[in-house]
């Protein structure tokens, strides 16, 4: 149990997917301009990461059995894309409210590198099924935390770019603030072994 908590905290804070492993940067910068969409995107990532992990872990056992583990990237992309498509259809029929809430974000992240990274990492660390589920959930939560924090910064501080030097305006200052945020997350290094 302690092991699972350590895995969870480590991936949320220390090895945060966005801020220390630099996965999913594209959506992190693209969708963080509004708090509401950041929350929607974060929720969708958590959701997809967990179900993707639940499916790819058994698939990996299958690949290992045939000794073709090197194909994991190709196979995972295939499986995750199909899975997300399937889940979306399922939700459209039976959970239209949830489908509306996740909206456009669900198809957007089908083959997001953060999703693929979470599944491949969990396997390369040799986690058991329970551990890899916790790991991918934590990875999603970490992504969501980073998204929400950054959306907060962008909503409040980068609205008014008057104090920003002209060459830094726009994407420049966004990248600078993202990297400062990543630096501050380095303070968590060594918290968990």
């Amino acid at each position: 149990m302690v092991n699972l908590i350590v895995i969870f905290m480590a991936i949320v804070l220390v090895n945060n997917f966005v801020l220390s492993q630099f996965l999913g940067i594209c959506s992190f910068l693209g969708v963080s301009n509004k708090m509401s969409s950041a929350v929607g995107m974060g929720g969708a990532v958590v959701f997809v990461m967990v179900i993707a992990e639940a499916v790819t872990w058994p698939v990996m056992q299958l690949l290992n059995k045939f000794d073709i583990g090197y194909l994991q990237t190709v196979v995972f992309i295939l499986v995750i894309a199909a899975l997300v498509q399937f889940v979306e259809m399922f939700m459209k029929k039976y959970l239209p409210a949830l489908q509306k809430a996740l909206g456009i974000f669900l198809p957007l992240i089908t083959t997001n590198c953060a999703i693929l990274g979470a599944t491949i990492n969990a396997i390369s660390y040799g986690y058991s099924f329970a551990e890899s589920m916790v790991y991918s959930f934590g990875a999603g939560v970490g992504y969501m935390v980073a998204m929400i924090l950054f959306a907060g910064i962008r909503e409040e501080k980068l609205y008014n770019t008057e104090g920003v030097p002209t060459p830094f305006k726009g994407v420049g200052i966004i990248l600078v603030s993202a990297s400062i945020m990543a630096l501050s997350f380095m303070g968590f290094t060594g918290m968990f072994q």
Binding site: V59, L62, L63, F66, L71, V75, L78, A82, Q85, F90
Partner: peptide
């Protein structure tokens, strides 16, 4: 194996 996985996925999607 990859072909089978692809087939299973597409069958699943058609079914869905």
């Amino acid at each position: 194996l990859v072909a089978v996985i692809g087939l299973v996925c597409s069958a699943l999607l058609v079914f869905a």
